[in-house]
Amino acid sequence: MANPKIAVIISSTREARFADKPAAWLMDKVKDHAELDFELVDLRDQDLPFFDEKASNLWMPSEDPRAVAWQQKLAGFDGFMFVVAEYNRSITGALKNALDQAYKEWNRKPMTALAYGSLGGARAMEQLRLISIELQMVPLRNAIHIGGGDFFKVSPLGQNAPISEIEENLKGALKGTLEELTFYAKLLKDARV
């Protein structure tokens, strides 16, 4: 059986976003994963309108072909890892809109994140986990957080150092997150068949 396929979704679409740096680091770390296949999905590259359907696609098919294309893309994944920026104690508007554009395609799949911000994106992760429960995803306990001094060391708001300078601090979280993601992605993929 093929490895579960995991979407790494960049949630910030701003031109001046920080997300590219941690996303590139993460993709480098998972490129040779023996049990999961990862694909980078940048919300900036998705042609998503603001949600304007009559209802969620749980209740009726979406009419906008851009929403349908997004749903079809999501359907091909077995789990999700979000690169989460914290904006005003929550997730980005672009991510919330992307989450709302689908429903069934998120169901019964694990989700986790690499979150960042002064407090490690913890408050955005809290919001994302609540939303993911409503979308019937399986939010994982483990996630990777870049916060505090580490965030300001690698962020353009601080020293703008490479992620390699804080990598030692992220190794344990990365290992735990990937182990848990592997377990649930395989389990839930088999259960959905």
Rank of each mutant, 00 (worst) to 15 (best):
K5M: 13
I9F: 12
I10Y: 04
S12P: 03
R14C: 11
A16R: 15
A16H: 15
R17I: 06
A19M: 00
D20I: 04
A24M: 05
A24T: 14
K29V: 02
V30E: 01
K31L: 01
D32M: 00
D32G: 07
D32A: 12
H33Y: 08
A34E: 15
D37S: 13
D37N: 12
L40C: 06
L40T: 06
L43S: 04
L43K: 04
D47T: 10
D47H: 11
F50Q: 07
E53K: 02
K54H: 12
A55G: 12
S56K: 02
S56R: 02
N57T: 09
W59F: 15
P61E: 12
E63C: 01
R66H: 09
R66W: 08
A67N: 11
V68L: 09
A69V: 04
W70K: 06
Q72A: 13
K73Q: 14
K73P: 03
L74Y: 09
A75G: 02
G76I: 02
G76R: 00
D78W: 06
D78V: 03
M81L: 15
F82V: 07
N88F: 05
R89P: 01
R89T: 09
T92S: 15
T92Y: 05
T92N: 05
L99V: 13
L99I: 15
L99T: 10
L99S: 03
D100P: 06
K104T: 14
K104S: 13
N107D: 00
N107G: 09
K109H: 08
L114H: 00
A115Q: 02
A115P: 02
G117Y: 08
G117T: 08
S118V: 10
A122M: 14
L128W: 07
R129V: 02
R129Y: 05
R129P: 04
L130H: 03
I131W: 05
S132Y: 07
I133R: 08
L135K: 11
M137V: 00
L140M: 14
A143P: 06
A143L: 08
A143R: 05
H145A: 13
I146Q: 01
G147Q: 03
G147W: 01
G149C: 08
D150G: 09
D150I: 00
F152A: 03
F152Q: 09
F152C: 10
V154D: 03
P156W: 09
L157D: 10
G158L: 11
G158H: 11
G158A: 10
G158I: 11
N160L: 07
I163N: 05
S164K: 12
S164D: 15
S164I: 05
S164W: 05
E165R: 07
E168V: 13
N169W: 02
K171R: 15
A173T: 09
L174G: 04
K175Q: 14
E179N: 11
L181K: 01
F183Y: 15
A185Q: 11
L187H: 13
K189M: 15
